[in-house]
Design a protein around this nucleic acid. Structure first.
Lengths: 211, 211
DNA sequence: GTCTATAAAGAGATAGAC
DNA sequence: GTCTATCTCTTTATAGAC
């Protein structure tokens, strides 16, 4: 009997783990279509047919990787959208959490955004699975900040500042740090200190005149 | 004799144009590996072998599309890096230029970033072709702003705020605008007014205390 | 569980007729 | 220029031996 017919397997086997690890690395870097099952098997150092044995099809293997990636991505946003606290309180901690997560998995943003850009119809389903209710979240946002900067624009600004430098890593490294990876990484670390006061400014004054 | 052996063809033929148009649409959305030559031919309504006749190989067709996409992307950054003016002067106009370009081609960021993420080694070559010299650019940056916010962080912030909401379109639309595309587009338009004063703040005060 | 063998479809590319 | 026919290689997936 095939393993994937059993209920809710929880990545027990060593082989299964190797497959997932290799699949993540390769899907993150080359995308779904750019990665073959053979590539993954070679990277994991196992026979190719074992991928089908454990995950039945490429689609299902990809889904496992994709959902795993999403779950390191959206929860931070979900907290932001559903939180009972005010922005001012939790924004700094959240920024640090997001950047730390991205420094460990810098390839996830571009991977997730590419997949969602190819299949935008997946968004509603994805949000449901992640436990985010857009209607409730948006209503709360509007109650939370009746004046000042539009809360949606504020959230867009925060996540843009956190995520984009990771999504654009090759461009940023080459364009701003002359290809020096260490300098790039150092700059990403610094942003954990730089961004919170910046975001604080967003919420304090939203008019353009300053003198 | 094959057409692609002639010197510097300039997209004359109607057929050639149809190929490029379809290739752009499909490569932008599905990526290089996710798009087959047959897909492009079907979309253009022509015979598949004509793609090889005009562009010799899939690689060469992709390169034509990629370079074209890059050229709508990097020049704005090049101007920013090489300009003789101060940031304060040209930042607002540049922001508007970038956002206008992105509203016309919203898929380009994710397309370009995905390709560069898969092949980061391409960056140096790409910059050379786009006429950007990182050494000169970075030196100028440091002369330009000896104190205040690190100019590299400043540039990162500006391009993040401009580009990311387009790269993350499906997420933003669903998460913040409940799937309403018109609202999303309206918000992108508003950012042309919102961002310049924000960026101005970056350059005026860089310390965290405000009261 | 892991392997070999093989099926069946799809990919990119070229030759050659018109 | 545009088409048909064909070659070659790769891909996903399954059957069946061990």
């Amino acid at each position: 009997m095939l393993r994937h017919t059993t209920e809710q397997m929880a990545l027990n086997t060593e082989t299964e783990q190797k497959i997932i690890s290799s699949a993540e690395r390769l899907f993150y870097q080359k995308g779904k279509a750019g990665t073959s099952m053979q590539d993954i098997a070679d990277d994991a150092g196992i026979n190719r047919t074992l991928l089908n044995y454990y995950f039945r099809s490429k689609d299902q293997l990809f889904e496992a990787v994709f959902k795993n990636a999403m779950s390191t991505f959206l929860p931070n946003l979900a907290v932001m959208l559903h939180s009972e606290m005010n922005f001012e309180e939790y924004a700094p901690a959240m920024i640090e959490t997001i950047i730390d997560a991205l420094m460990e998995n810098p390839q996830i943003p571009i991977f997730v955004l590419q997949e969602l850009s190819s299949n935008p119809d997946r968004m509603p389903e994805v949000m449901k699975e992640m436990g985010i209710d857009p209607v409730i979240a948006i209503t709360k946002m509007e109650e939370d900040r009746p004046k000042g900067m539009d809360p949606r624009q504020l959230i867009m600004n925060i996540i843009s500042l956190c995520i984009f430098p990771f999504a654009a890593r090759p461009v940023v490294t080459e364009l701003l740090y002359n290809g020096d990876n260490d300098q790039y990484l150092e700059a990403m670390k610094q942003r954990k200190q730089i961004l919170p006061p910046l975001v604080k400014q967003f919420m304090i004054k939203s008019n353009g005149d300053e003198n």
